[in-house]
Each structure stands twice: as C-alpha cells, then as structure tokens.
C-alpha cells in the first residue's frame, strides 16, 4: 500500500535543509535566529537518520533521532538560558557584541 520512496531523495532533502540551516547560522546576527537555524540543522541530521533507518527497516534510525531530540532539548535549554543572560548583560541579541574572544 505504501509507495516506496528512493533513499536518495530523502537524503537530498536532508542535505538541502542542512545547507539552509547553515546559511541561517552564518547570516543572521540575531542570536535567537542563529539558535533556530541550528535547530533546523539538527533536524536535518535527524531526518537523515530516519531515512537510513527506513532503508534498512531497522529501529536504530528512530533511536538515533530520539537521542538527537534529547540533545536538541538540552541544547535549547542551555542556549536560551545563555541568551537571557546575554540580554541582561548587554541589552542586545546581536551576536557580534560577543567578540571578547578576539586574539
């Protein structure tokens, strides 16, 4: 009943989403957008796992996705905490303000 989908297409979709997330991370100066773009990238990775899991008809792909999900949850929690802290200190969400690592 289910039409089979070529693995190639699923992976290409993941690649496209990943590249779009990368563009977002690189171009946005608002740190909230940066974080959102990161979510897109993580999600693309999860998609790739699901596609592979589907190809071999194994549960491992979904398990990997679950783990990525927990990682994303933890990352978002910490990242948003940092954003709040940053906003308190600098009154801005401009990522370029955080340039104290300059060598």
């Amino acid at each position: 009943m289910m039409g089979a989908i070529p693995v190639e297409h699923g992976l290409i979709l993941a690649g496209i989403l990943f590249s779009l997330g990368l563009i977002g991370v690189l171009t946005r100066r608002n740190i909230v957008f940066v974080l959102m773009s990161l979510e897109v990238m993580l999600n693309a990775c999860g998609l790739a796992f699901i596609v592979a899991g589907s190809r071999w008809e194994q549960a491992d792909g979904q398990i990997m996705f679950v783990l990525i999900l927990t990682l994303a949850a933890a990352e978002v929690a910490v990242g948003l905490g940092l954003i709040i802290q940053m906003y308190r200190r600098f009154q801005t969400v401009d990522i370029n303000v955080l340039s104290e690592l300059k060598g």
Binding site: R29, I95, N96, L98, S99
Partner: peptide, 17 residues
Amino acid sequence: IVRTQTGYLRWYVLSMA
C-alpha cells in the same frame, strides 16, 4: 593567524563550515 581570531562567532562557524 591571530588576525583570524576576530572574536565573532559567525566567523568561527564560517571557518568550520
């Protein structure tokens, strides 16, 4: 090399990419 260390996170991400 020290000039590459701009302190801008986006620059680091760009170099990683």
